[in-house]
């Protein structure tokens, strides 16, 4: 099981690949929409790539609750556990 730092690093890579944002900008407290300017289509791509990378399921109805990077990291950590 990956720890939260590893999940954050992996998620940052996915975000970087999709949006071109530097990985250092992807921090736990950052909002996907407000701070990182990620639209809903990019968000879905990130979610699907995260599912694949971490071997978890992130249901569509859950995605709207993942407003910050930290929310996503927590969700993935719990889902993995």
């Amino acid at each position: 099981m990956a720890d939260k730092n590893e999940i954050l690093a992996g998620l940052a890579e996915i975000v970087n690949e999709e949006t071109g944002l530097e990985t250092e900008e992807v921090q736990l407290g950052k909002s996907f929409t407000e701070d990182l300017d990620i639209d809903s289509i990019s968000m879905m791509t990130i979610v699907v790539n995260a599912e694949e990378k971490f071997g978890v399921k992130i249901p569509d109805e859950e995605v709207k609750n993942l407003s910050t990077v930290g929310d996503a990291v927590d969700f993935i950590a719990n889902a993995e556990g």
């Binding site: 289509i41 879905m44 791509t45 699907v48 599912e51 694949e52």
Partner: peptide, 9 residues
């Protein structure tokens, strides 16, 4: 699930 959301555009 793996079909990317940007597929149509």
């Amino acid at each position: 699930r793996r079909v990317m959301p940007m597929t149509v555009p």
